[in-house]
Amino acid sequence: MPNVREWLNSLKQKFAPKEGQPPVPKRVRDYIGGSQIWRSFLRHGLPKTDRIRALVVLSNVLLHLHPVKIRRSGVKLRYTWCMGGLTFFLFLVETVTGLLLMFYYRPTLEYAYVDIVELREQVPLGVMRELHRWGAHAMVITVWLHMFRVFMTGSYKPPREFNWNVGVVLLVLTLLLSFTGYLLPWDQLAIWAITVGTNMARATPLLGHEGPGSQLLALGDVKLIHAGSDARFALLGGRFVGAGALLRFYVLHCVGIPLVAATLMAIHFWRVRKDGGISGPL
């Protein structure tokens, strides 16, 4: 006890206002700002000079997606609509809320539905589910609008062909993410939307058991493509939307597609920079 008191006294003395010294708040700020921890995490002071502004972007792995300087048109909302950025932001929202939902949700026929009901009724801040679902819808819309804007400004033209292609794949992945997530609440809306949606896969030419040409894949009267071996089956893990489909969609929704999408996003953003930043008139 006495030691603590002594130590406090020493601190008091140390910070007691002395003449010719700056006031305490500034000294505390300087102390913290000068500490090794602070410097190692932030590396630079407040971006008051252009040098530091450049450093902020350059030395931060998250911000260095951006160039240090950017065309004035590129920051104009009128021009960009910020739809790509919003899509990415929504992806992050979906990742975080989705991760949290996974703590309560079990992808089995017994529990899936009741877990969602529990989320709605019992889980604290179960509004997470609403955020996740509406965020997903919003993401589909923003990604479409992003594509729309990119088309309208002709930004798919050389040298951005490759990145446009990556973008198209990302658009498809976004739809698939939303589609796979649609099943997980395991309610009537979910099961029938996925049933209707995946029924089309039955008609895949050659690989769907009700698709043109699937009869050709047969050995005599032994059909090779049937409800248990066609494209839809691979998707659903069953002949109809059931336990297998729920699990497969869950895995694809939570791990498979996000992994691919995140990788492609990294490529997409990197290509934006490599292709000369956000597009503008040449």
Binding site: G228, A234, G237, G238, R239, G242, A243
Partner: peptide, 15 residues
Amino acid sequence: TLRFMFPNVLFEPPS
């Protein structure tokens, strides 16, 4: 991997 997606047994009631 593709083959892995087609299990040897199914737990669906026979239709």
